[in-house]
Design a binder for these strands. Structure first.
Lengths: 347, 347
DNA sequence: CTGTTAGCGCATTCAA
DNA sequence: TTGAATGCGCTAACAG
């Protein structure tokens, strides 16, 4: 006996350790389960007092809808699959931060996967995310395995490809033109009067965008009749440490440059550290320019001249565009979140 | 007509845009759905050839189990709820990286929530994560609202509380003693011969661990007959910029210190930048010590003396301990991932 | 505006 | 070693 005066069949109140279900709420509110469901999802017309009764019952029981059941019944779930190349590079947590910001106030939640820059890993993650029938999948770049592309295109799930807009998206692309950013770097350095420009980069086999910036840089220079006078690429992923080493190597090779364009801010900050340690004045001895606009670059004794890439905005904008249109549209869309030069003191 | 020579009832092959289900696989492999389910979950005895047939059918159809259905039926899901205070502070993405590393090779996926250091937000996130009946929930610290604590304790879900071990966990705690880390900082500075020690910190109303380190620092000093000779706390969250400002303010107030202990590395790196910009020699004019062991501190012209906090290990260890024991054990457990002094060149 | 009727796709009893 | 039956908790038609 777990109740007094209640008939055996009365399970309007869930017993002790039992979690309440729609049925419990429905009974307590004296309506059908369906009505409770409608109230919760804010769907269809509900009489104000009915809504009140239902909400009271929900509160009384501390009812929390079972998402698995909801997803199964509706064959769709309030999950946003988020695929990131890496968590080591601060850039991607910042994108995730934007995604999260765009999700506040909704009942969607990000479910994440990290590819480590492997397209095969991305494919596995896509498959396992699709198993949840998510509302959307957000990934980076336009490169996917054939199987991955087929899965993405074949699903009715909305797809966003972030960071880059220099190619044709499956559904939605949000980011900036890295090629244009590279050209802008070239123009800036030339305008500032530098003419012997070197490039310091990291391994770009997995980082297509770094390569696009490099190409833009070269194009931008050649438009003014210049070209790179020296370049050095490490075989490691980008990091401050690598940047420091790479600039040191480039200079040790005797490169006669007056400015160094780096593949990104991590590398550039490392370069700055090398200059400090080596007693090389910046920018008079050597000008430095990065890409991304990370906080750390702006706290250097001389703020780094760089290109702001708006990572947060990329994530937030993507989510907003995705949630605005739950169905995948006929036409793919591209949203350019742009970039801007941060005029620091190093170039 | 969508097939030739096939009877109307033959749906062993899902039609065009239809995603295959267990039933499709079962029919193709000529076994019951049940058997397919067993093969997939590796449960119960299966005849080798049956397994082969089933796997072949799975591959042929490109079958991917519907997670919502599985979760509903088993009332548990391969989700790890991960609650982080922030994504702006690199420390938490690193913990997430550890969690992700511990999840590789499993079918669990992290579903994340960000509290922005608000306990009320944490409570909401806990409730919405519990709606998925996750395998575990990982959060930080021991402070939760009463309702949140009730939910966590009441659920049969495994709970890990990360970062800190200076209190009693609900189920599992993984981290380090921040109080001890503070004492270690004090001991290190004193051993190095510094005696006029100042403290530079950030807002700790939401960051209990920074406060614990501060208390440990004070205790450690007093054990050697010393005490802080100056301190400055900004009202902002920690950042390099704030660290730079804070040290500048402390020194502008005329503090006569020979060493500054910072609340963390972000603040300490900012302090280093101030010294560089102000022409103050480190460590001879002023010694600096941080906490965390971030990469950026190690790339400064002089590597930062700091305390390594093993964020990656915290995340990875937590996952491993959680997955090892799916049921919540009777006794709560504490795993100390420890810390170690990084003997840099700034103190 | 509300209730009734059917599943969603799988895991979990039980039998065989 | 395998199969048949049952239901997880909810949403989605359709009536009324």
């Amino acid at each position: 006996m777990d109740g007094e005066g209640r008939s055996i069949a009365d399970d309007s109140v869930p017993s002790a350790a039992e979690t309440p279900t729609l049925a419990h709420v429905a009974r307590l509110a004296k309506v059908s389960e369906n009505t409770v469901s409608r109230v919760i999802r804010n769907k269809g017309p509900i009489a104000p007092e009915t809504r009140l009764r239902v909400n009271a019952a929900i509160d009384a029981l501390g009812y929390v809808p079972n998402r698995a059941a909801g997803s199964l019944a509706s064959s769709s779930s309030p999950i946003i699959g988020v695929i990131l190349p890496s968590l080591s590079n601060i850039v991607f947590p910042e994108v995730l931060r934007g995604i999260n910001a765009g999700l506040i106030g909704t009942s969607y939640r990000p479910m994440i996967g990290v590819t480590d820059y492997s397209l095969e890993t991305e494919q596995d993650i896509i498959s396992s995310l699709l198993a949840w029938h998510p509302a959307a999948i957000i990934t980076t770049g336009f490169e996917h395995t054939t199987a991955a592309r087929r899965m993405l295109e074949g699903s009715r799930v909305r797809i966003a490809e972030l960071m880059d807009i220099d190619d044709r998206p499956i559904d939605l692309a949000v980011g900036l033109s890295h090629r244009e950013a590279g050209r802008a770097m070239a123009r800036h350095l030339v305008q500032r009067g530098y003419s012997r420009i070197g490039y310091v980069g990291h391994d770009w086999t997995a980082d297509r965008r770094a390569r696009l910036r490099y190409e833009g840089l070269c194009e931008g220079l050649s438009e003014t009749g210049l070209s790179l006078v020296a370049e050095y690429r490490t075989e490691a992923p980008s990091s401050t440490l690598e940047g420091r080493r790479a600039l040191a190597s480039l200079l040790a090779d005797g490169a006669a440059i007056d400015a160094a364009a780096f593949s990104n801010d991590d590398m550039a900050v490392g370069g700055f550290m090398h200059c400090m340690a080596a007693g090389m004045p910046v920018p008079d001895g050597l000008a430095l320019m990065g890409f991304n606009g990370l906080e750390i670059g702006q706290v250097l004794p001389k703020p780094l001249t760089t290109v702001l890439s708006n990572r947060f905005a990329i994530g937030k904008t993507a989510i907003e565009a995705l949630l605005e249109t739950p169905q995948r549209p006929q036409e793919a869309r591209i949203i350019d979140t742009g970039f801007s030069i941060i005029e620091g003191a190093t170039a």
